[in-house]
Design a protein around this nucleic acid. Structure first.
Lengths: 159, 159
DNA sequence: GTCGTATTGATACGGAGTATCATAAAGCGA
DNA sequence: TCGCTTTATGATACTCCGTATCAATACGAC
């Protein structure tokens, strides 16, 4: 596992550090002339410090009480923006509310440790080429796909 | 594309007909001594006839008005039971409410035509073996994964 | 500082999904 | 077929996630 190259080559697997994520995100916000407001900084600080995949409501609970007044709609707007632009990814859970994990935009897939939130990012999707080929042979045109892996990282297995 | 063998061999790709799904489901309900009530029959009839992935609320709208009184909680109980036992699978959508498609229980993945709801089911997950191997080499234990493919089937591409 | 624009907060609303509990129906054994 | 036990259903009300609206505010370019 190395520091994150850009872009990921196919099949490569790296861990995404919070610091790296934050740096890249702030660069992107500058490039795209997104305003860095007080509120967004607080939200980004919180997400950068998050140690496990988080739910939007956790953010709301913390940021509306502790850090001064940040309204629920604003937090949801920030989260939705990050999700839409690919900086966080939604993790689906049966029944429970979904959670989010830090990601890099682009065509990546990810494996998330459900205990500590460690996010492994891997590039390309060679792994499904055989499947895609089979589908195409049946006349099926693939427009999108979703691949999420859940489990425990090396650290969290020991506990 | 053939009729559905049991069980699916790895990499095999077949379409799941509503009739086949219904037959297998009723067998399973008998085997597991699940009561076939009037309400469940109506719900199953509706799902069997569904031509595209459906939302729970669509079911509610149709079944509470047209088919006599079926209450919202009952419909949600039926849907949740089918999901939990693997007879329907949840399809995730950004923003919008999630939908469901007919599936067979077991370790399958699926490709769903977002236009007509045709569901292609494929068994095994050889396709991700290389990835799983890489993850294990990094000490990551995979507990679960989610692979969904969206697109258009041969029929729906022509329109 | 001033100004135009994007963002925020307050409020209230909508909608999906569920807890509760008395009633009704399914299925089984006699 | 009748009754009995168990399970499912319906009515009601409620919780909670997420969002529309819009006036007020903060950003940051000049």
């Amino acid at each position: 596992m190395t520091t994150l190259p850009q872009p990921l080559t196919k099949g490569e697997l790296v861990s995404l550090t919070p610091q790296h994520w934050r740096t890249r995100l702030e660069q992107a916000m500058q490039d795209e002339q997104q305003r860095m407001t007080r509120t967004r900084r607080l939200v980004l600080d919180w997400i950068t410090a998050a140690e496990a995949p988080f739910s939007a409501e956790t953010l709301v609970d913390d940021l509306t009480t502790r850090q001064g007044i940040i309204s629920r709609p604003t937090i949801y707007r920030a989260v939705e923006w990050l999700r839409r632009t690919g900086w966080i990814g939604r993790i689906h859970h049966d029944g429970a509310e979904h959670t989010y994990a830090r990601l890099l935009p682009g065509h990546y897939h990810h494996a998330v440790c459900t205990a500590c939130g460690l996010t492994l990012v891997f590039g390309g999707c060679d792994l499904t080429q055989a499947l895609l080929h089979t589908l195409v042979a049946h006349g099926f045109t693939v427009q999108g796909h979703l691949l999420e892996l859940y489990g425990h990282c090396a650290n969290c297995q020991q506990t």
